[in-house]
Design a protein around this nucleic acid. Structure first.
Lengths: 192, 192
DNA sequence: AACTTTCTTGAGCGATCATTCAAGATTATA
DNA sequence: TATAATCTTGAATGATCGCTCAAGAAAGTT
């Protein structure tokens, strides 16, 4: 009977994620979104409900892509190899809208203003850390990491290191490749 | 001849710094500032010129306090001791408006929206890193750190670790004391 | 007390914020 | 081709944004 939407919802969410990732929540106005997604207000609100609802979708999309990338890397080079290469991989994403992690940016910006969105970002960070922990545990079982170390503590530190690396990567004049190498090299010291 | 201002400008800048630190640039409205500083718009603009000008003053104030705190610590326990204790000291500042670094928050939020303010925050981060480098160099001269290490690289990594620690400290359920200990313990592995 | 200078006050500016909604355009079914 | 259903459009909403400015209050000098 009716007419079908002329846009691809998935593509729109990707575009929104890129904009939010780069410019943040407050830095991205509805006007920005309308222009980037080529949607008039009416269509926008029919499709997504609100700016906040779209931001949530963007967060989910972002987190899913990150987890998929890490899992793919682990399938390719193993648990320990993935942990070692992941920092450099993050620094190699030159086409990305920003170097810093969108989840951490969201927590920092929205903790006091939009608690629900910040909480969703925190959830995803926690899920990511659980993924790191699983990899550390596998690396330990494979004999790449000594049994004396606590995978939970390793994952916590690794996550923190990555967040620091990615914040540093937003700065000018920081040798982020050297920094990524430093972090990776630290993993070798866990052999026993 | 005239009347004197009824407020203490220094106190006002401190209050503004706390608000900006906690809520960020966009998250802090003029109304918020007027209420916190108890200043009507006219007085505010007579005293500071603009929201942005006050933000710059707040950044300067923040950076100066951080540098002073580190220097004082170094005077007390020496270069290496200061580097070792500083992470825990940051986590002990429970009265602070936020755990994350205001400079990194500013860079992340304002890089695309307010380049001038972000650049000023970057400057302060750079200055802080130079301070770390000087401490690493002194620690090396004192024999606490082996001569094989590059102080510039050590400072870069240390700064990144601290930024990661302080971002992690904004999250819920992260054992930040353990994280701070981890970072400090890493310095002991530089003895040779 | 009169005068001068500065500070304080708050109404109000244009711009922009996210959002709504009614009218018009488009397409699939009957 | 007529009808029904959905999509598209953009003007308009009230709220809030950072900021201006003229008028009134206060304090130091004479």
């Amino acid at each position: 009977m009716p007419r079908k939407p002329s846009f691809d919802r998935d593509v729109l969410i990707d575009q929104a994620r890129d904009l939010f990732w780069k410019q943040g929540w407050a830095g991205t106005s509805m006007k920005d979104l309308e222009k980037a997604l080529k949607l008039k207000p009416g269509s926008f609100y029919a499709a997504f409900g609100s700016k906040g609802a779209l931001f949530e979708l963007a967060l989910d999309r972002y987190a899913a892509a990150g987890a998929a990338r890490l899992s793919a890397l682990a399938d390719e080079v193993g648990a320990f190899g993935a942990l070692k290469h992941y920092p450099a991989l993050l620094m190699d994403m030159t086409a990305a809208p920003a170097r810093a992690c969108m989840l951490s940016k969201t927590v920092l910006e929205l903790k006091t203003q939009e608690a629900a969105l910040a909480a969703k970002a925190e959830e995803h960070l926690q899920r990511m850390e659980a993924l790191f922990e699983a990899l550390f545990r596998r690396a330990q079982q494979n004999g790449d990491i000594g049994t004396g170390h606590d995978p939970t503590a390793l994952a916590r530190r690794y996550q923190s290191d990555l967040l620091g690396l990615r914040v540093s990567a937003e700065r000018l004049g920081v040798d982020t490749d050297a920094l990524a190498q430093d972090i990776a090299a630290g993993l070798d010291r866990l052999a026993d």
